[in-house]
Write a protein that binds this DNA or RNA. Structure first.
Length: 501
RNA sequence: GGUCCUGUGGCCGAGUGGCUAGGCAGAGCUCUGCAAAAGCUUCCACAGCGGUUCGAAUCCGCUCGGGACCUCCA
């Protein structure tokens, strides 16, 4: 069964066929580094990290490009005509690039805590001003943009008229009809510069107080909201590439404008498959700055936010996101996060135990029904992922397997119930899906060597105490370690294990 | 106002018309020096009304509720 993904452009699931197999080009809209990332931002980056990992698992050679927007984008267009980044820089008495660097660093730190793989190319908007200007020049030359008072606007109506004939009207992605837009578009300042209200800026004239500014054929200014993605995706992935991703809220106008710009310049729809993840909500409302309900990632990790009853690890959040399908909304709550925390721990412990088992491949199964069930559950991992990346269903199967693994571990099921080949297959696929594709990892990593040695010593002493029925000593060790957050667990075979936190 | 999505058990969440998703929480049991962990069993469900169908959470209609986009937004 081949990979099928839901294409926002056609509004249906389609079989994924790369333009130039085995190569795959994927562009994902990255962050605007004018502030801290919040929980909502985590979703696309984790979702598309899993897409990236899964494509590689399937054997594709992927070039994953995710930009950093470190220039442009208005707080409120026209009102003070001030660049968001430069505005904040003034307030904080910082150099714009100092601010950009600070939030870029924070963003990279959060990405690595989530165990997101770095993209192959992470281009910045400020590093591609020339490419953007060149693209704007082409659009003007082709007659789809015009200059007004040092700014350049895209002529949406002309584009729509001409490209509707080619089956690609403005609004093709979001399903909007330009005529409706014209009537309902909100009143904005600087409208008088535009020929039509739906026209959007490619280049903005910089007023005197604007700090971030570049020379252009139209005077000093800075690029418009959408042109950077067109310029950078074209430069690194070509006129036509495979996958374009981002949050659903970018579908309009951002991705719609990207399509228009790129199509004029390159005479092609830029991407074949458009993937959009849904929003994270909180109390049913989208988490976003306009709603004043964001929880920043640093707050998630420390618990320092009034909406949080505790801190959550990056892996808990990653698991939480993977438990739902990426196209549905996902509601945040402490209860839900706590459930994820426990579930992840259970999954991880079973996976870890199983991966330590040495298997005799030649062994045959004594329980053929169970053996077949396990094989089926594992084989379905691929099947579910191929059905529009249904990570939730894969996890459901994993938990059925966790029960079986734990039963064997606790000797409720005989060790030879499964064939060696099945156990090896299970080990291999669990490793592939849990670690390589879902990108989950254990939280306890560093300085474990010495600590584990000390713990093992305590465990040995406790075992000896138990052996001579000195429960005062054994309970003391257990309880005091528990108070420090180290949980000891007696196992069936007289062994003992521990978990931190 | 326009376009679209959505309503699943205490909570979160999958669900291709017919077969208990799964997780967390609750109850009982097993194991255990006691716990914890784990296993087994179990409770709780498809917003409402009507229609199609042998059969609907799943298709259609209506009603009610929630949300997103139309403006920077992941």
């Amino acid at each position: 069964m081949p990979l099928k993904i839901y294409n926002s452009l056609t509004r249906q699931k389609e079989t994924f066929e790369p333009i130039h197999p085995p190569y795959v080009g994927m562009y994902v809209c990255g962050p605007t580094v004018s502030g801290e990332s919040h929980l909502g931002h985590a979703r696309p980056f984790i979702t598309f990290d899993v897409v990236y990992r899964y494509l590689m698992y399937l054997g594709y050679k992927v070039r994953y490009v995710r930009n950093i927007t470190d220039a442009g984008h208005f707080e409120e267009e026209g009102r003070d005509a001030e660049d968001k980044i430069s505005k904040k820089a003034v307030l904080e008495k910082l150099e714009p690039m100092e601010l950009v660097q600070k939030y870029t660093n924070l963003y990279h730190w959060a990405m690595s805590r989530f165990n997101n793989l770095p993209p192959n190319i992470e281009p910045t908007a400020t590093g591609h001003i020339i490419e953007q200007i060149e693209m704007i020049k082409t659009i003007i030359a082709d007659g789809y943009a015009y200059e007004a008072n040092g700014s350049v606007y895209f002529d949406v109506e002309k584009y729509n008229t001409d490209f509707s004939k080619k089956g690609q009207p403005y609004g093709i992605l979001s399903g909007r009809v330009l005529e409706d837009q014209m009537e309902n578009s909100r009143d904005l300042d600087n409208q008088e510069e535009k020929r039509n209200r739906s026209d959007f800026a490619l280049w903005k004239h910089a007023p005197a107080e604007h700090i971030m500014r570049w020379q252009s054929p139209w005077g000093e200014g800075f690029p418009g909201w959408h042109i950077e993605c067109s310029a950078m995706s074209t430069k690194y992935l070509g006129d036509e590439f495979d996958i374009h991703g981002g949050g659903m809220d970018l579908q309009f106008p951002h991705h719609e404008c990207e399509i228009a710009q790129s199509t004029v310049c390159n005479h092609k729809m830029p991407a074949r498959y458009w993937l959009h993840n849904n929003m994270i909500t909180i109390n049913g409302k989208k988490m976003g700055k306009s709603y004043n309900n964001v929880i920043r990632l640093t707050e998630m990790f420390t618990g320092q936010n009034a909406m949080l009853t505790q801190a959550y690890t990056p892996q808990t959040i990653r698991f939480f996101i993977l438990q739902s399908h990426y196209r549905g909304t996902l509601d945040f709550s402490n209860d839900a996060l706590q459930a994820s925390e426990k579930a992840l721990k259970r999954l991880w412990e079973a996976h870890e135990w199983l991966s330590r088992q040495v298997v005799t491949t030649a062994a045959t199964a004594t329980d053929h029904i169970l053996d077949n069930k396990v094989k089926k559950l594992v084989e379905e991992f691929d099947e579910f992922m191929n059905d529009d990346l249904n990570t939730a269903k894969v996890l459901a199967n994993m938990f059925e397997l966790v029960s079986i693994i734990n039963s064997i571990k606790d000797k409720h099921l005989p060790a030879d119930a499964l064939s060696g080949a099945t156990v090896t297959f299970l080990q291999k696929q669990l490793h592939a899906f849990v670690e390589e594709i879902f990108g989950l990892k254990t939280e306890r990593t560093e300085d474990n060597g010495k600590l584990e040695g000390v713990l093992q010593l305590l465990i040995d002493i406790r075992k000896e105490a138990k052996g001579r029925k000195d429960f005062v000593t054994s309970d003391k060790i257990r309880d005091e370690l528990a108070a420090l957050g180290v949980q000891l667990k007696d196992e069936k075979d007289g062994g003992m294990s521990f978990t931190l936190g």
